[in-house]
Each structure stands twice: as C-alpha cells, then as structure tokens.
Amino acid sequence: MTASFEPRIEHALQSFITDHPGMTSREEAVSAILENWFTNHGYLPSDQQGTRPENLDASNDD
C-alpha cells in the first residue's frame, strides 16, 4: 500500500503500530484498523459468539 495520508492520520497510524507489538507493516496496521471499523459498524460479521447486547434482558441472565 502506498497511500499517503494527512500528517495527523500518519501520526495516529504510527502510534497505533507502536502500541501493537507484532505489527510487522504499515499495511497490516491499516488492515487491522479497517477490519475493526467494518466489524464495529456492521459491515463485517463479528467472530464472537453469544447474545448481542440489544437482545439481552433478564431472561438470559445466568
């Protein structure tokens, strides 16, 4: 990926990479950020199992 972003986004991206040991490339970081955003906004399914928060009520308390 050769995309260049405005300085504040570049800085945030570099901070993200620094905060995530094991990130081996800028491309990997951008991919992780996009995957997280898409999942949190309903564009990708979550890998988590369980009851969605909006479906929780007293009947499914353990």
Rank of each mutant, 00 (worst) to 15 (best):
Q48M: 04
M23P: 00
I9G: 04
N40Q: 15
Y43D: 09
S46A: 10
R8D: 08
A32R: 05
Q14L: 09
E27V: 10
T51L: 11
L13Y: 01
S31M: 13
L44Q: 12
T2E: 01
N55Q: 14
Q48E: 11
A12G: 05
E10I: 08
P21S: 01
N36S: 09
G22Y: 05
A32C: 12
A29N: 01
D19P: 05
I17N: 02
W37R: 13
N60C: 14
F16T: 03
E10N: 08
S4R: 03
S31W: 12
R8V: 11
L13Q: 07
Q14P: 03
F5K: 07
P53R: 11
D19F: 06
R52M: 00
N36M: 05
D47I: 12
P21I: 06
A58W: 03
H20F: 07
H41K: 15
D62M: 14
D62I: 14
V30M: 03
E28F: 01
T18V: 04
L56G: 00
S59D: 15
F38Y: 15
D47R: 13
E28P: 08
H20N: 01
A12S: 10
S15I: 03
G22Q: 08
E35W: 05
P53L: 11
V30W: 01
E54F: 11
L13T: 05
V30K: 07
T39M: 10
T51C: 11
I33V: 15
S25P: 01
L44M: 13
F5L: 06
M1V: 05
D19E: 08
D19N: 02
T18N: 06
D62V: 15
S46E: 08
A12I: 12
A12D: 11
E35G: 14
S15W: 04
S46L: 07
H41S: 14
